[in-house]
Design a binder for these strands. Structure first.
Length: 765
DNA sequence: CGCTCATAAT
């Protein structure tokens, strides 16, 4: 929180200063010639060529001034405007010097323009110097100072100037208040914002549309979405800006559907949207992944003639990219003659998003590598990546388990200074976590200058995933001491940590704390953690009792945990009961069916096997392929179970045979072979399973052959590991003295010295 | 006064 004692301490400060009801004048009450100094030229739309130069040739005019030619005061006006456009500080100096020489600096109007000019050129110091020597200060000068400080990222100074203004003889206008509210936004200070709001109400400016719009935006950006909507509803004459603010606020606060319905209301009230509105609406379509609606909005943009505008285009590209229409996205991108950094970022983020929605892991990987290519092109284009680029690309590296690329990007964030951004450093932490490098993740966390809820939660779940529950819980307590309020996701991390450690009392304690102290309603995930914990300790009755505590229907995941638990603890009857319940809700996940089939097959309940298979046909569950992949030097190799298609197969199989022999001599005993694939009937149901090597073994063997001795091998697998492979890989690490990391569909396994970080409590097929 | 791109989970 910024230190603004005069405001923060005395809530009444603003009001006490003046009780003159005229203290806030409507903007129109400011004499016209004084308004000129404040008038800002609307920024040229991105992607559109600047309008042709004004009649005045600025260079010639500046040359005249340098020669010392005497001019009239009116001569400066267009020149000052021109300098504002070019943002040239040296030119500003030339004009300023001449004005002083000719004595025109006594004219308030010119000097006020100079304040504005210096602010626009980024020199708040020069602006302040001119301002304090002004012979007479009108509201335009005050407002130029406030706006200038806001634009130069000095919001605290902006508020300071406002306080001085209130003590002066000047009256703020709605422009002034608008600038002050922007300062509150930049400070994320809802406290000061509320006081300004009170001021606005007191002096009767609340009904002014622009005021309502500013307040609406303030509340939205300070996380008070309810107030934002309330203010919006109370604006008597809503204009297109009011509607756009409300619509984009819905997106910012995670209510895209509401935003779309407000857009519908806007249309039914016959307010015409503009490019700002349509850009926001396109973004909402992205959030809900509604390509059909998005295409309609895109045609809308074409109808309005704004589809070429850069922000509109960026949103459109992102939409197509995220929804998998990569050719369309690429076409739009290639057609553009001018792109902005946001365009690049939208391409990268679009690919990153598509990874989550791809139809299979091959497509997902392709998307990830496309994102890396775009990032590389961005670097070569001469444009500097920003925090958005870095956060997106680091997330891509996490999903790909692309540690080498991730490390390079880490170096780049250090060089460019973007690592100091919380979002970037959180993304980095996450990248190291997903790649199995917990030490680097911890370092990233420790080196953060500020930590958000997400940084803490990321670190916490990182400890939990790496099988270090005690540290997870210690971190949770540190987080609370630091005054950071945990949310639902944080508690998933805490509960799963307790679950892994079998800390039942602690889990129950934190479960109660979540509801009692933080008022967070437990959702499915929290119940899943608790039930999982009881199941792991073999307390099946407690697990089923906890299911009864839920005030909603358990989902597929919960029943699957129970079934798996019943199987491993040999309670067939409870397992069959859970399976009945599961079948009632018609599961969707392919792994759920594998679990069911394996259970019924091992119990030789062939009628049930047939029932499950027919349900799979009804629900259109396809076949599952056991697949693993490994990335070496930017090259991904995919493997199926018993894959012999790779040129190095012979070597790989020989290596595996040797490893198996050594493992056996060290005491490895295979578990009864488990059918992982669900293929067509005859292969799996007759029990003549020929599976010898599941895919991760092949990927690991390939990794060992193609990396230096002793190097860590990192493999990703599309489904859960089976118990047998999990056990065998532990032996591999002992034999080869290598660390092996396997990220399966459920969790991360870091194998070292014959042990796994999951503590063998992972869910196995 | 309003727009587009970014981080956490069983």
């Amino acid at each position: 929180m910024a230190s603004l004692p005069s405001l923060a301490v005395g809530g009444a400060t603003l009001h006490r200063l003046d009780s003159d009801p005229r203290k806030l004048l409507p903007a129109s009450a400011v004499p016209l010639e004084k308004k000129l100094a404040y008038q800002r030229r609307p920024p040229a739309a991105e992607g559109v060529q600047e309008a042709s130069a004004p009649p005045l040739d600025a260079q010639e005019a500046l040359a005249l001034l340098r020669e010392g030619t005497a001019v009239e005061s009116a001569f400066y006006v267009p020149l000052l405007q021109r300098c504002v456009e070019t943002k040239s500080l040296p030119d500003a100096g030339v004009v300023h010097a001449h004005i002083i020489k000719t004595g025109f600096h006594q004219e308030t109007f010119l000097s006020t323009s100079l304040v504005n000019l210096y602010m626009k050129c980024g020199s708040t110091e020069y602006a302040r110097k001119v301002f304090v020597t002004l012979p007479r200060r009108n509201v335009v000068a005050w407002t130029a100072m406030i706006t200038g400080y806001v634009h130069n990222s000095q919001p605290t100074d902006a508020i300071g100037v406002f306080l001085h203004l209130l003590e002066s003889e000047c009256y703020p206008t709605s422009f002034t208040i608008g600038a002050v509210l922007s300062a509150c936004c930049a400070l994320s200070s809802i406290e000061i914002g509320k006081q300004v709001h009170g001021y606005v109400i007191k002096y009767g400016a609340e009904s002014e549309t622009s005021m309502g719009n500013s307040l609406c935006s303030l509340y939205s950006k300070c996380g008070s979405f309810e107030s934002c909507l309330k203010v919006f509803e109370r604006i008597p004459d809503k204009n297109v800006i009011s509607w756009t603010t409300a619509i984009s606020s819905c997106g910012d606060n995670g209510y895209p559907e509401l935003g779309l319905s407000i857009f519908a209301n806007m249309l039914s009230e016959n307010v015409e949207p503009n490019e700002y509105t349509l850009t926001s609406v396109l973004s909402l379509c992205c959030m809900v992944r509604d390509l059909r609606l998005g295409k309609q909005i895109h045609s809308f943009c074409i109808k309005f003639g704004c589809e070429q505008q850069l922000p509109v285009k960026n949103s459109t590209i992102y939409l197509y990219q995220k929804c998998g229409e990569i050719n369309e996205a690429r076409r739009l991108f290639d057609e553009m003659d001018r792109v902005s950094l946001i365009t690049w970022n939208a391409m990268i983020a679009g690919h990153a998003q598509r990874m989550n929605w791809a139809k299979d892991d091959i497509e997902s990987n392709l998307s990830g590598f496309e994102a890396l290519k775009v990032f590389q092109k961005l670097n070569r284009s001469g444009t500097k990546p920003d925090l958005f680029s870095f956060s997106s690309i680091l997330t891509v590296c996490s999903s790909l388990l692309a540690l080498e690329q991730g490390e390079q990007i880490h170096a780049q964030t250090v060089k460019t200074g973007y690592l100091s951004d919380v979002v970037v450093s959180s993304a980095l932490l996450n990248m190291y976590n997903k790649c199995g490098c917990i030490e680097d993740a911890i370092r990233a966390f420790l080196e953060m200058s500020t930590r958000t809820l997400i940084s803490w939660t990321s670190m916490l779940t990182c400890y939990s995933q790496h099988g270090r529950p005690k540290e997870a819980i210690r971190l949770f307590e540190n987080m609370r001491s630091a005054g950071v309020r945990p949310n639902q996701v944080t508690f998933v991390g805490v509960l799963s940590a307790c679950s892994h450690a079998g800390m039942i009392d602690e889990a129950e304690y934190y479960f109660d704390m979540m509801t009692d102290e933080y008022g967070i309603r437990p959702v499915m995930d929290h119940y899943a953690c608790m039930i999982d914990m009881f199941v792991r300790r073999g307390r099946l009755e407690d697990a089923f009792a906890f299911v009864d505590k839920m005030d909603f229907q358990p989902n597929e995941i919960i029943w699957s945990i129970l079934i798996a638990g019943c199987r491993s603890h040999g309670n067939k009857d409870l397992g069959f009961y859970a399976a009945e319940k599961l079948l009632e809700i018609k599961p969707k996940g392919i792994e759920t069916y594998v679990l069911l089939l394996n259970m019924y097959i091992s119990a030789e309940r062939w009628q049930d096997v047939a029932k499950v298979r027919s349900l799979m046909k009804d629900e259109n569950i396809g076949i599952i392929r056991d697949r693993s992949w490994i990335s070496i030097k930017g090259q991904v190799s995919f493997f199926l179970a018993n894959d012999k298609s790779h040129p190095q197969s012979t070597e790989m199989y020989n290596l595996l045979e040797n490893l198996l022999r050594e493992a056996t001599s060290l005491g490895y005993v295979p578990y009864k072979s488990v059918e992982v694939s669900v293929k067509e009937d005859e292969e799996s149901s007759n029990g003549s399973s020929t599976i010898k090597h599941h895919s991760e073994r092949l990927a690991i063997a390939f990794g060992m052959i193609n990396t230096a001795e002793g190097a860590t091998v990192r493999v990703v697998k599309n489904i859960t590991m089976c118990r047998d492979c999990h056990n065998l890989v532990k032996f591999f690490t002992t034999i080869t003295k290598r660390e092996i990391i396997v990220r399966d569909s459920k969790r991360l396994h870091r194998f070292t010295d014959g042990k796994c970080s999951c503590g063998d409590f992972g869910a196995f097929l």
